[in-house]
Design a protein around this nucleic acid. Structure first.
Length: 156
DNA sequence: GCCAACGTTGGC
DNA sequence: GCCAACGTTGGC
């Protein structure tokens, strides 16, 4: 069982969008970065736990949790010429991009803000702190549970 | 909306 | 295979 952090711009797709989906389950697609793609395709497994992170917005931070409902399969949008995520170099025989399905497991009452994560030394080694642009990133188990703790008992 | 940091592309 | 030019991301 592995732990991850998935990023999304809430203007594009927020945790509220996921909450509104049937069965609170949706396809996490549109990943077009090779490093993120490789993690998604090769390491993200069904049952893994995921932090939902809002980037490029007012309250940047972790806003809830999800569980991987289905492991990687080719992202259908790469084959759709009308999609923003269309990739002319991809074909069904030779897909370039992958997606997974996720189910919402929790929406935090108190999001754990990037601000907080930056202040606490135990998070110094988080990928988020070093390689903030990676949109699919591994999270240490201890960090995952520390985030949950902070969501329940926010620092005054 | 700006801009620094990072990623990708393509000519050589 | 290098690297300049270009494109994208994301915190501010």
């Amino acid at each position: 069982m592995n732990y991850w952090l998935f990023k999304s711009e809430p203007d594009c797709y927020s945790i509220a969008h996921l909450a509104a989906e049937k069965q609170q389950t949706a396809r996490w697609d549109g990943i077009r970065n090779f490093q993120a793609r490789n993690l998604l395709r090769d390491q993200v497994a069904k049952g893994d736990e995921v932090l939902f992170y809002h980037s490029r917005c007012k309250a940047i931070g972790v806003v809830g949790t999800m569980r991987v409902a289905k492991a990687a399969y080719p992202d259908p949008q790469q084959f759709n010429p009308d999609s923003d995520y269309f990739d002319p170099k991809a074909s069904p025989d030779n897909p370039r991009w992958f997606c997974v399905d996720v189910t919402l497991t929790r929406t935090f009452n108190h999001p754990v803000l990037l601000d907080t994560i930056k202040q606490l030394p135990e998070f110094d080694t988080m990928v988020l702190r070093k390689q903030s642009r990676l949109s699919i990133q591994p999270v240490e188990k201890s960090h995952f549970f520390r985030i949950l703790e902070l969501a329940d008992r926010p620092p005054k």
